[in-house]
Amino acid sequence: MTIQIPTALLDGSVLAILDSQDMYGYLLTKEIQKHVNVSESTMYPVLRRLQKNGDLITYDEAFEGRMRRYYQITPLGQKHLVEIKREWQDFSAGISEILGGAA
């Protein structure tokens, strides 16, 4: 059985990665996939929604004669990231108490 990542955690993961560095779609997808199993087609709707909510902005930058659309976290996105982190810590602590933690 695989546990599917809930929307809020995927949002949090995207925001957390972008909080350390701006990224373009392909790189961001690969970065997320290093850690959790999400399908390629999941990412675009997530980015679109986060952008619409004001958590992200985009800008285009030339790279080797082509454009790359970069995603950048906004102060609002950072605020949401803090909230998601806190909720996740509460949640994971609770589940770990029941199921047993990794530590």
């Binding site: 373009y24 779609g25 392909y26 790189l27 997808t29 390629e40 675009y44 980015l47 790359r68 659309r69």
Partner: peptide, 14 residues
Amino acid sequence: SDAMLYYEQYFYEG
């Protein structure tokens, strides 16, 4: 156009 830009870039990078 937003979706197409995303996927064009994704396909190119990948």
